[in-house]
Amino acid sequence: MSGDRRAVGGEHGPSAVELLPRFKRDGCNLLVSGAVSESTANRASQRLLGSPNLDRKRVLVQTGESEPVDGLLPPGVSTADRSVRVVQHRTPSDDGDGGDSLATLSRRVAETVTGFDSLSPPLVGGELRLVVTSLDALLADHDVRATERFLRSVTDAVSSVRGMGHYRYPGPRADLSSLPTERLFDAFVDLRDTPATEQRLSIPPSRSTDWLDL
């Protein structure tokens, strides 16, 4: 699902719930947002990265400078596992190191995805799971155009192997109005802590699900 990701159904097309099996089978890229606790955001990532009882290839794109990533993984899965890769964005250091450009980071992510797909047997739909840990860190260090190019490259890499990618933003989705989110992502997962820990799936232009327990 590359290109303009709005084309997922007309006004009277399939509902968000009806499209979930297709997303799991054919892959998708999801924006996960909401001003929630770290534990709530991590719980969402754990579910989106797939059951520890199933064969999944997991890619964690660490965009914050020192944020831990083990808490994003499902219980029993570790960054030391052969089926897990961590791609860390190097920011400029005090000793003059220029760090990674977003073009370099997106190339490393694509190479990691290709590396998994080159294994025998190749990846099947929904087998690859990817998370970009913090869009806010990218937007803090890079302009909107560079961030958009990075996201287009990564979402295309995920789509090329029918994987499932999700991209975390720790605030309301409306705060990302500078990005063409409806063209970059297939759907949106909104999170909230109150009145309960819940999630809601929205797939433009079809209707959203109700708030569901996370």
Rank of each mutant, 00 (worst) to 15 (best):
G126L: 04
E65I: 08
T155L: 10
V189F: 06
A110W: 04
R145V: 14
S37T: 08
D117Q: 07
L60Y: 09
T63A: 09
N29W: 07
A7T: 14
V32E: 11
T104D: 12
R43V: 10
G9F: 01
G50D: 11
E198M: 10
A157W: 08
Q88I: 10
T40V: 15
S208V: 02
D210H: 12
L30R: 05
A140F: 15
V8Y: 06
T147Q: 13
P205N: 09
S106P: 02
V8G: 14
L30P: 00
D136K: 13
D4L: 13
T147K: 12
V154R: 02
D100G: 10
V109E: 08
L102S: 00
G27E: 09
L73F: 03
D55Q: 15
P121Y: 09
G13W: 09
V17S: 06
L123V: 13
L102P: 02
S153T: 13
T63L: 10
V154G: 00
L73I: 11
R47T: 14
S93P: 06
P180Y: 12
T112I: 09
T181C: 01
G34Y: 03
L179Y: 09
R82N: 11
E67Q: 14
G9V: 05
L212D: 08
D100V: 04
T133W: 06
A41T: 05
S202L: 13
P204E: 08
L212P: 05
A80G: 13
N42L: 11
P172I: 07
E38S: 14
R47E: 14
R43P: 01
R200D: 02
Q62L: 15
L119W: 07
P204I: 05
F150K: 06
P52A: 08
N42P: 06
R56D: 00
Q62G: 03
V59W: 04
F150R: 11
G165K: 04
D81K: 13
R82E: 14
L49T: 04
R47A: 14
L184Q: 08
L72A: 09
L19E: 07
S153H: 14
R129D: 06
A41F: 04
T147E: 08
V84R: 00
A41W: 06
D95F: 13
R145N: 07
R82M: 14
S93Y: 03
S106T: 07
L60N: 05
A187W: 12
Q88K: 15
V189M: 03
H89M: 14
H166Y: 00
D70P: 01
D94K: 15
